[in-house]
Nucleic acid binder design. Structure first.
Lengths: 158, 158
DNA sequence: TAGGATCGTCAACGTGGCTGTCGAAATAGT
DNA sequence: ACTATTTCGACAGCCACGTTGACGATCCTA
């Protein structure tokens, strides 16, 4: 068996990945709060991304996020209450309710993308652009392709 | 302003970090389930680490984890019910209840460390040892030192 | 037209956060 | 030494997010 390196214990790797993720998300939301979106939670940003500019339904959203349609529906309720999403009837299928981003939601979406780009550039300025690209490539090499599972609270907790 | 790279949008970085974290944690718990710890949740492993071999109190645990003493107490309750932790009176301070890992808890702790080392070696085998070390160094350079905040469910959700 | 799928919602529950309160016990101050 | 403050752990109540199960309404198909 290969020897473990005592000065680089394996448990640091997940902690560093989590810390990196958390740093980015916290910085994003600090900036979004300054730009008129103080109520947006980390989860909400991802849901907004999953809804996208074209809209979806609750069931489809649940599939994209890897959660049940009921859980997706509840989250949509909250984002509707916050003014980020709206529901509309589907004229072609009376069972379905289309979920769309409101103008406020689209604004949040656009600003999120811009801030994420800025944060990536900040990392590039610190580490060098090649190291950031290498980091991305390495992570892609060791993770499965189905990245987009966002049931983090339930997954991590219980 | 520096130009954003269209083929490497900023929002991928947090997704890749999260995916890396999640891959490691999922692999860990799949292996722990095989080794006699099927009930251990991701959160529980970190709590166990925070308790450590010497034991603590609920309040101190809450401070280490970045959550309230009440939340820490509840989590301790569940880990006591699962047989990973136990409470004992502090003979020097009747207010305090010492929280210690049981033999079963210490077993989980040891196995977690071993599996994390193995997973890191697996990454090193895929990427090369130098890339893994570089990844760790880079992440350390862009994240604040206070990594150890584990209120992930409440933080992400909210 | 009858039967089966599918969509959204309601209800109940588990887990993990939070705040506020409170009694018991330790510590500090007079 | 006695009071006042602080600290610890627990209880209660609340919110966010996840789950499963059930059930009308609607659509599709046999």
């Amino acid at each position: 068996m290969a020897t473990a390196e005592p000065d680089r214990p394996g448990f640091l790797l997940p902690l560093l990945l989590l810390a990196g993720f958390r740093t980015l998300i916290d910085d994003l939301h600090a900036e979004l709060a300054r730009q008129g979106h103080p109520e947006l939670r980390p989860l909400h940003g991802f849901v907004l991304q999953a809804v996208g500019g074209d809209g979806t339904t609750a069931t489809e959203l649940g599939q994209r996020l890897g959660v049940s349609k009921q859980a997706a529906g509840k989250t949509v309720d909250r984002l509707v209450a916050l003014g980020y999403l709206e529901r509309a009837d589907d004229p072609r299928d009376a069972r379905r309710k289309l979920v769309r981003a409101t103008p406020h939601g689209l604004d949040g979406l656009r600003r999120s993308a811009a801030v994420f780009d800025q944060l990536r550039q900040r990392w590039a300025a610190t580490l060098g652009p090649d190291r950031v690209a290498a980091l991305e490539d390495d992570l892609r090499a060791v993770t499965p392709a189905n990245l987009f599972r966002l049931d983090v609270p339930g997954w991590f907790g219980g």
